[in-house]
Amino acid sequence: MGLWQRHADGILQQLPADRLLALDVFRGLTITAMILVNNPGSWAYIYGPLRHADWHGWTPTDLIFPFFIFIVGVSMQLSLCKHQRSPGVQLQAGALRSLKLIGLGLLLALSYYNLRDANFDWVAQRLLALRYPGVLQRIGLVYFCCLLLVLWLPWRGRLLAALALCGLYLLGMYGISYQDDAGNSYRGLLEHGNSFAAWLDHSLLGPNHVYYRSASPFAFDPEGLWSTLPAISSCLAGVLTAQWLQQPGALSGKIKAMLLAGLAAVLLAELWHGWLPVNKPLWTPSYVLLSTGYAWLVLATCLWLCDVKGYRRWTAPFVVFGANAILFFVSAGLAARLLSMIPVGDTVLQAWLYRHWFQPLFGNYNGSLAFALCFLALAYLAMYGCYRKGWIWKV
């Protein structure tokens, strides 16, 4: 048996017998892709598929976050069935988990200090200008709202809730008028900086506390308030998928059905795109349909490879990353911030490494990608160490 086989078998043997390997692999693939696209050597040199779409439309990168939201829903349903506790206990635990996720997101947002600027004022430029929304903040909010619906609604109610949330979102986006500071009225727009969702972020969060602060006429956030509604629908899609997989029936038949449903959802979303654009920052319902369709395709493929064909060893690195997904995301975020803070000559360590090592060796784009892959390799060593010792960070 070779070194890789022993390494992979050692990882898989640590998995509890009741774990759904395909879900762990899907989670690991997703968080790996998230870290890969978040840590290029240079933001000026990124291959198209590793970038977000400029506005309407999508790239593979735009599927990563909704995949994670979908997986949260699948995991929620499996956990609720595994741990039979009262709704009150589940709600209390869920509220605590949500607050932890939001707190970690805010901690990441605050974890930066400009060491190259002697006049940098962390309180004024970071704390008082804190970006309130974020990836972990959205996961926390979506998780708790979805949990509320799941605890008190049967499967038909959950399905209707997912559809109703998308309907309510569209009602706001197309039916509610809003005004800018000059008194100009708008309604039904899906423009960058001009939509009901953007107006709501600008009005309630403030232009100094969102990601797109210079957007006009309204500053807004891609993880903003109104777009959280259809994001909950994405999570409910994961819950309903897990519920369906738990029903009696042959797994092979379910995989085929999931593949067909995924293809149909993707096709319908692409057709719908002509009327309601697929848009990640706005999290439009067509985007919910598209990303859910692709999530079905990926999950079905993982189930077929792992549970039908028995191909398991290739999954080992993704099991390691997926087992500690939140720790991986937070530690990678902190490491990236350190690389962007430490001064080296006239620049920072991250840029220095890219310019002096990766760019000369591999070129602009390949060097940027090589930096991200090296970042992942080092992260794997750290996460594998945690996995071997059984250090799994439960939020």
Rank of each mutant, 00 (worst) to 15 (best):
A295M: 04
A129C: 09
L153Y: 01
L104D: 04
I102D: 04
H83T: 13
A8L: 06
L200K: 11
Q179N: 10
V135Q: 03
L204H: 07
V320H: 01
L229R: 09
G363E: 03
I64N: 08
Y47G: 11
G10N: 09
T32A: 15
S195V: 10
I139N: 00
G140T: 01
A242P: 03
F318C: 03
Y211E: 10
L361D: 00
G345R: 02
L190M: 14
A215W: 00
Y212T: 01
L147M: 06
V395C: 13
S75C: 13
Y174K: 15
L338I: 09
V298T: 10
G322D: 03
D18H: 13
A93K: 14
G224R: 08
L127D: 05
A164P: 05
W314N: 13
R51D: 00
Y169P: 05
T284S: 14
R313V: 07
V123F: 15
W55H: 11
F26H: 04
L107R: 06
W275I: 15
G57V: 10
L148T: 07
D307V: 05
I102N: 04
R156H: 15
D54L: 15
L271V: 15
T59A: 08
L147D: 02
S111Q: 02
A215M: 03
D24G: 11
K280Y: 05
R51W: 00
K82Y: 00
L104S: 06
L381H: 08
G385S: 08
L104W: 11
G385P: 06
W272Q: 11
L303F: 07
F26N: 01
G57Y: 06
A33R: 05
P248I: 00
H273Q: 13
Q90D: 14
Y132F: 15
F120V: 07
H192A: 14
R156E: 09
A237E: 02
Y387T: 02
Q246H: 09
N366H: 12
P133A: 07
A93W: 00
F65T: 06
S86W: 04
Y178T: 03
P87S: 07
P230T: 12
Q246I: 00
L361H: 08
L290D: 05
L303I: 07
F120K: 06
P87H: 06
A351Y: 00
A242W: 02
D24R: 08
L128Y: 12
L23E: 01
R131P: 01
M1V: 11
V319I: 15
G57E: 06
S203V: 10
L3C: 02
W244S: 12
Q84L: 12
G88C: 12
N114V: 02
D117M: 05
